[in-house]
């Protein structure tokens, strides 16, 4: 029954997911491996002080974060952009492919012709997306847990895990938006484009809100604002995560309702 939709969604993605995990782990390990030479280069923090304000804000060191500390270093090098980007790219790709992509390819016709509620097909796809993101997040956490001590990094482990999971939740929200846009438009291209554009704008707004007063009120519209900035240095704010979780649930509900109502396109 409906479990098969989840099983199939994950089965189709196993190889891609493995590639994402290996790629992300390799990138994270490389960033960690560079840390000892950065820490001992005393000029780095001074150099960073002279970065333009825009770059400092975007890289999550606006508040004068110390690049030479492990937490400050990882916040700037990973958590400000690259780590969320890995999770976002996978979430949006999966969210768009699993519903709009399969719909466009005609692969959902026989699934929906089975005695299933269409809305539950969408929920199964959303669960599959969550499992995938959890796997990628787990690969990242494990990589940092192993590589960190090897590079002589002292990390607050629960805080690090929370920071990765917060980024995964941010990605899940964008993936849920891909599901909803895919359910509404049935086109994979717009199911990728809309959440990708939101991610780009959201990143800039949250990053630059501290510099431009006029931009500041808009930061509440950016999902990145709720995922938190510099999560290793300042910790993850639970209330922001609750906002992201609620928006995610609403988006999945919208996707299920839209998909339930609309005609299936003929292949």
């Amino acid at each position: 029954m409906i479990g098969e939709v989840l099983r199939r969604a994950l089965g189709d993605r196993v190889r891609t997911l493995a590639a994402w995990c290996v790629g992300a782990a390799a990138y994270l390990a490389m960033i960690v491996a560079v840390y000892p030479s950065i820490r001992n280069a005393s000029g780095i923090s001074d150099l960073a002080k002279h970065y333009p304000d825009v770059l400092k804000e975007l890289f999550g060191m606006g508040a004068g974060i110390n690049l030479a500390s492990a937490a400050g270093y990882l916040d700037t090098e990973l958590f400000s952009l690259m780590l969320p980007l890995f999770l976002l790219a996978m979430a949006i790709g999966t969210g768009a492919g699993t519903l709009a992509g399969e719909h466009e390819a005609g692969l959902l016709e026989l699934v929906v012709a089975a005695p299933l509620k269409r809305g539950s097909v969408v929920v199964a796809k959303a669960v599959g997306l969550t499992v995938e993101l959890a796997a990628l997040a787990a690969a990242m956490i494990v990589t940092l847990l192993i590589a960190g001590p090897l590079a002589d990094m002292s990390l607050d482990r629960p805080r690090m895990a929370a920071a990765v999971l917060a980024a995964a939740l941010l990605a899940l929200m964008h993936g849920a938006l891909a599901l909803a846009v895919g359910a509404a438009t049935r086109h994979r291209a717009s199911a990728i484009g809309v959440p990708a554009a939101l991610a780009a704008v959201g990143y800039l707004v949250a990053g630059l809100a501290g510099l431009a007063d006029w931009l500041s009120p808009f930061r509440y519209l950016s999902p990145f604002h709720y995922a938190g900035r510099a999560p290793l240095e300042s910790g993850v704010d639970a209330s922001g995560l609750i906002v992201l979780a609620i928006v995610t649930v609403v988006l999945v509900g919208a996707a299920a309702t839209l998909f339930q109502r609309r005609d299936m396109a003929s292949a």
Binding site: A105, G106, L107, E109, L110, A113, A114, P115, L116, K117, S266, A267
Partner: peptide
């Protein structure tokens, strides 16, 4: 959905 429990279906352009 229960109406389809005992129904087999071949689409015109099966994918």
């Amino acid at each position: 959905p229960r109406s389809r429990e005992r129904v087999g279906y071949l689409p015109g352009d099966p994918r």
